[in-house]
Simulated assay, not measured.
Amino acid sequence: MTLRLTSAAFPALLLVALPAHALEDLGECLAAVEAYHHALVEEDIPETWSADLEHTLGRAVSACEDGDLARGAGHLEVAKAQYEALFEGEDAGLGGVTDADFWVLADTMWGNRSYGKGVDYMQFDMTGDGDGDYIGYFENQDNPDGPSFQMLVVSKPAGEETVKYGFVSLPYNDGSQFSLCNLEEAPEPTALRHRQFSPEEVAALEIPVSRQGAEIDDGMCDTIRVLWPVGMAGELVEGMGMRVPLVLDRN
């Protein structure tokens, strides 16, 4: 799919471009959220592409209605980055990966009919091959080893038949390097966000990675960055595809 800004979207984006710290009251917060909604309608962006943005806007409204304008402003900053990401790489599509490819693997990881168990996803080019990927995530509270936050990346470059995927499961509160903070004490549910990393950030890692990645934020501890290793073939897993080890990083 190709997304292009049209002139009709610019009046709404004048408000969207306001710095989040300029919020002074609930009305201004709601007006900013409405500006995003207007722009999404004007650009005819499919709901599957804007679901993550809509979720963030909902959190902004809730925070502002609770009187916490600073937290609402923070959510709007995230929303701004998510909105801009929708228009990055105008020639990027969804390659050969399909909705069915994603849900087959999601069902394998999280059980049949995983779409009804709280599994959510976003779409962007995480692998850096110019085609969009599916990034699913799920807070698994039934894990025999304890509650965990799990993330699944599914990709199929255009022209290829075999799916490539990456999967990570991060435990809560076990003291390891990539442990998340206590689920019950967290002020908000753990969030997964799309982020474009700077050339300096990716150069600091030991292996080449795509600049398009994700951040996992439990609202308490340092965020965990998840990136796709560029050029890694992966290991063939029967019935699933080529599994590629995702790269984790944390300050």
Rank of each mutant, 00 (worst) to 15 (best):
F102D: 08
D131W: 00
V247E: 08
D68G: 13
L40E: 15
T190Q: 05
G96D: 11
H194C: 01
A8E: 15
D125F: 00
V247Q: 08
E215T: 06
V154H: 03
A233Q: 05
R4P: 11
G67Q: 10
A20M: 01
A51Q: 11
V163Q: 14
N251T: 08
V168G: 08
L94C: 10
R193G: 15
L40K: 13
L180P: 05
S210P: 02
W110Y: 12
G93K: 00
L105M: 08
V97I: 04
V78H: 10
Y172N: 04
G234W: 06
C64H: 03
E185L: 07
G89L: 06
R113N: 15
S155T: 06
V237S: 08
C221E: 15
G89Y: 14
L3T: 09
A22F: 05
Y172I: 01
A63H: 11
K80L: 13
H55W: 03
L246Y: 12
P19Y: 09
V237T: 09
V163M: 08
R225L: 01
A20D: 13
P245I: 01
E139Q: 11
D99N: 07
R71I: 01
V168F: 07
E54L: 09
D145F: 00
Q212S: 11
Q123H: 03
T56A: 10
R250L: 03
T162V: 11
N112E: 15
F124Y: 13
E24F: 00
S62E: 14
P189N: 09
F102V: 06
L86H: 12
A8N: 10
V41P: 07
K156H: 08
V33C: 06
L192K: 04
P147E: 08
F102Q: 03
K80H: 13
P187F: 15
A22K: 00
S179H: 03
F124H: 12
H37K: 06
S148C: 09
S7D: 12
A204K: 03
H37T: 06
D218C: 03
F149V: 02
H55T: 13
V226Y: 05
G96I: 00
L5S: 13
G128N: 09
C181M: 03
R71L: 11
F138E: 08
K117A: 14
G130I: 04
L15S: 11
V41A: 15
D91M: 00
Y115M: 02
A214R: 01
L246S: 15
L14N: 12
E161A: 12
M232N: 14
L180E: 11
L57M: 09
E47W: 01
P19W: 04
E34S: 12
D174I: 05
E65F: 12
R225C: 05
P11V: 00
Q82R: 06
Q212P: 00
G95C: 04
G241Y: 06
A106G: 14
A22P: 06
I207L: 03
M220I: 09
C29G: 10
G136Y: 08
K164C: 06
A9D: 14
Q177H: 04
G175W: 05
R195V: 13
A12I: 03
